[in-house]
């Protein structure tokens, strides 16, 4: 019987396919990303990358709703991650081909 662990465990899904670095062409921030399919994205920021992000800095908090002032994500970074996946620089775990005609996949 081993001593119970108290550390933070690694996502089991990362054992076979870890996160990979991706740079954003807009602000130069580097994050870690992983895609299990074309429409799934895991994204780990650092404080430095977040400080660099242009969209983050221009997001204004003006909503009267309690949850609507949070930064939902960076569109430039989303595009950069997708471009890296299309270019083969970021692995896509699923072997399904890139859906090139969105109308065919409603």
């Amino acid at each position: 019987m081993s001593t119970p662990r108290t550390d933070v465990r690694l996502d089991v899904r990362l054992e076979a396919a870890p996160m990979q670095p991706v740079g954003c062409g807009t602000c130069g921030a580097t994050v870690l990303a992983r895609k299990s399919s074309w429409d799934q994205t895991t994204l780990q920021w650092t404080a430095a990358a977040l400080a660099t992000c242009a969209e983050r800095r221009t997001t204004t908090a003006g909503s009267e709703r309690p949850n609507r002032n949070a930064f939902t994500g960076c569109s430039a970074l989303t595009a950069a991650i997708r471009a890296a996946a299309v270019a083969g620089q970021l692995d896509v775990q699923s072997d399904e081909p890139l859906p090139t005609n969105p109308e065919a996949h409603p």
Binding site: D39, T41, T42, Q44, T46, A47
Partner: peptide, 26 residues
Amino acid sequence: YQQFYVDVEDVTPEMTDRFEFEIDTT
């Protein structure tokens, strides 16, 4: 969640750094 169960000086960046995860619902 672990950040709330350790002393405040032991909170690490990995507990609080921004993380995003979008599921493919297809």
